[in-house]
Amino acid sequence: MKSSNFKNLFFLLIGIFTAGVSWEVLLFFVKDKPVPNAVFTQSIIDAKLVSEVLKSENPKVLFVGGSNVLFGVDSKQFSESTGIPSLNFGFAAGMGPELILDLISNHLSSEDLVVMNWEYEHFRFERSGIIDLTYLNLLMSYQHEFKRKLPFIDQRHLSLSTPFSHFREAVLCHFNPLVDNNIYRCNWLIDNEGNVRSNKGVQISKKELIASPSSLLTTEITFTSDIKDIFSNFVKDCRKRNVQLFASWPNTFANPVYFENEIVDANIKTIRRFWNSMGVEVVGNYKDSMLESEYFFDTSYHLNAEGVRLRTEKLTSQLKPYLK
């Protein structure tokens, strides 16, 4: 190989490296300049983290998951029925399980009980896979500290996955004097126990629900190594802290295609085996969380007020035997 080739390669690599460093610097520059999407999601997180339930010294029950928990479990109804303080710790599913678990782990104490209702998509979560913008926008702004806890390679991957639009929006929102970022905050009614109170009526039709079965359930689930690590670390941490863990099933519209479907049955068995292998008790049957169309709000994961009441009632009866 000629020496000029080495020189060319050197200059090419220097160019790539310079661009990489410049991009990291640009992202660092906007880490305190959140974009609208991040403002929205963080305002939900803030609403939950200020709850008195989290600060309570007494044992508490925490319902954890994505939006199927946010729009699916009524922790207030649960507390009234059992007398145990509880909190709805559901967020946008796009935030991914790792960040949600990180948020909760600082607030767990001995004898707490955590009920996990992960969406089916969460079992395919990969730090270096297809990245959800909700997760990315948070990590590049409010949850910058969490990003630093991730492995170096995954941090770089996240940086590369961040679209230019994130930087553009961050700069525009910050430097535009006409924009007050507070307008992007979530305006749902969230009560002190973390429940959304603005999902009252039905907005989605049965036809729409039938037409859009979740491909996440009807295609074979394979657990990613990232998700195995994330959950097993969380389980170990909970054991150390004497926190009880349960897994349940996400709310889904009872689409006829799910029934007598070999792939769905196999997926359910796989999920059950996964939890059992870590010693996590699975409460109820997946069909318990599959409801009819009149109980859904805007998507096949979000229940309306009546749906939430029914689902919570069922969950409460399933959890009661485990409550001290």
């Binding site: 060319n8 160019g15 490296f17 310079t18 661009a19």
Partner: peptide
């Protein structure tokens, strides 16, 4: 070399 450096930036 300058062009190759520039192309490195663009390639990234």
């Amino acid at each position: 070399f300058q062009i190759i450096f520039l192309c490195g930036l663009l390639l990234f």
